[in-house]
Amino acid sequence: MESPADITQLLVRWCEGDRDALESLLPLVEAKLRELARYHMRREGPGHLLQTTALVNEAFLRLIDQNRVHWQNRAHFFGISARIMRRILLNHARDQKREKRGGGAMQVSLSKADEVATNASEELIALDEALTRLERIDERKCRVVELRFFGGLSVEETAEVLGVSPVTVIRDWTMARAWLAREVSHDR
């Protein structure tokens, strides 16, 4: 198990521009998030989860050595959580698709979340691919989508995280949505 010091080190490296660090970081954060999410769902029921980003917050608090990372730049923090959410949803969507294709063992839908995900899984996969293309053309727009859609941030929060004005975020967001909507419908 990685110690808080290791995780902090990875985080610092990522903040300094080391992309590999993020790749090592993601599974660690994901595991902690998974544990916390289960814990809270058991305690409070799924409803509570829907209301808050506190969980992501908590995961980081537990993972890192806070003396060494000061969240002056919240971009790192929210950036990671949005990235994780993107990955989790994508994996889930892929599983769903695989299951469907496999036919035979159709699972009985366990929850509303599953139903939503089943309907949306094809689109999520297409969205992810389109987003990767968008990143190559205009990286900031991709970040805006990650933070807004996967990270659940408001326009103002996104602006703060990216260090741009809210107007810029709105414009990026509109354009990115239009572009992605078009790409996704082409793909299908």
Binding site: E30, L33, R34, A37, R38, H40, M41, P46, L49, L50, Q51, T53, L55, V56, S81, A82, I84, M85, R86, I88, L89, H92, L110, S111, A113, V116, A117, V145, R148, F149, F150, G151, G152, R177, L180, A181
Partner: peptide
């Protein structure tokens, strides 16, 4: 399109076994 954040859905999926 994309107006409903996926964060909550992601967390919910995380919580499942």
């Amino acid at each position: 399109f994309l107006e409903r954040p996926a964060l909550s859905l992601g967390l919910q999926l995380l919580g499942e076994n």
